[in-house]
Design a binder for these strands. Structure first.
Lengths: 168, 168
DNA sequence: TTGGAATGTCAACAAAGCTGACGTATTATG
DNA sequence: CATAATACGTCAGCTTTGTTGACATTCCAA
């Protein structure tokens, strides 16, 4: 790890010590538990899992997305996604329609029931996020996002960026 | 989600919009993938999983910890941890010694081989973290940590704080 | 001495990931 | 038009990591 001159040259680089990095790693681990705790509770009651949440979330975010596209966003195999998707379709939370231009594709949408669950889940997750944001303040939130973005894989970041500025 | 007056009244509260919160949620999801990617690769080669990594990490951090203590840090059942611990002990990465004051307890340590794997894993994870920290800068890192800490459950935060200021 | 705490183990199960193989439309390409 | 490639679904089987529940052992403490 050669350390050339930094833009912050002259500033303290103590935030790059192994000790500081370890704290960040542990913070990430512990915080992620909190991050998923509230949706997890809701899902358990309905005998769904985190995988269902992820599918619902991204179908909501990218309505009419194809199976293949969802696959690459989630980073799982089609067999794995298919199992989740099948139950969501059977339970009437997701609708799958044959593509018009390309009839091989299936376009995915949330049904009203699916949208209702999506709202319940994201409300719960946002509540905790909002409390954390409010406690930390806007400057901290900007830093939070910056570090997270820098932590992503290249390919992942493209997915993130693509979704970033699409309005709700 | 009604938002009453905030302590920061007068300041911009745009960072608390649902849109901003959603971006934070997605950033968290995508970043966590990157966060675990490098150790995961190393572990797959050795046919271990993320659970083994977590056990090794916290045994390293809290040498001589008991099984019960590790249980509450990791937030899993003893049966689940036991399976992981058993393979690590069989493979000679972790040593379990009967407690002196309380002989019911088992105290856990890393063997030299376990410490070597721990180093390999945390080096990989720190490399990515360091790159992210460096790209974002010290102010962003401070904010990052603040938001993560505010996101934790109460009980989880205690574990985090307890480990926070113990030197390497 | 008796009750409870800490640990370990057996069995059974579920969620969610994986690989590999195969079938079936549909589209693209030679 | 024939063939190749793509998108999707599904079957089978396996792995990791979590869960409950039941039960035994050991040992501390009241």
């Amino acid at each position: 790890m050669s350390d050339g001159l930094q833009p912050q040259t002259g500033q303290s680089l103590l935030f790059l010590t192994d000790e500081q990095l370890r704290k960040g790693i542990e913070a990430m681990f512990f915080a992620y538990r909190g991050f998923t705790a509230d949706p997890d509770r809701i899902l358990t009651d309905k005998s769904y899992g985190r995988a269902h949440h992820r599918a619902i979330h991204f179908i909501h975010r990218s309505p009419s997305t194809t199976v293949n596209n969802l696959l690459s966003i989630l980073g799982v195999t089609k067999q794995s996604l298919n199992r989740v998707l099948r139950t969501l379709i059977e339970d009437g939370l997701v609708a799958s329609t044959v593509g018009q231009r390309d009839k091989r594709e299936r376009h995915l949408h949330l049904t009203p029931a699916g949208a209702a669950l999506e709202r319940e889940l994201s409300d719960a997750q946002r509540d905790r996020m909002r409390a954390a944001y409010r406690a930390a303040g806007p400057a901290a939130v900007a830093g939070f996002r910056q570090v997270l973005e820098a932590m992503m894989d290249e390919e992942t970041r493209h997915h993130y960026e693509a979704m970033k500025d699409r309005p709700e």
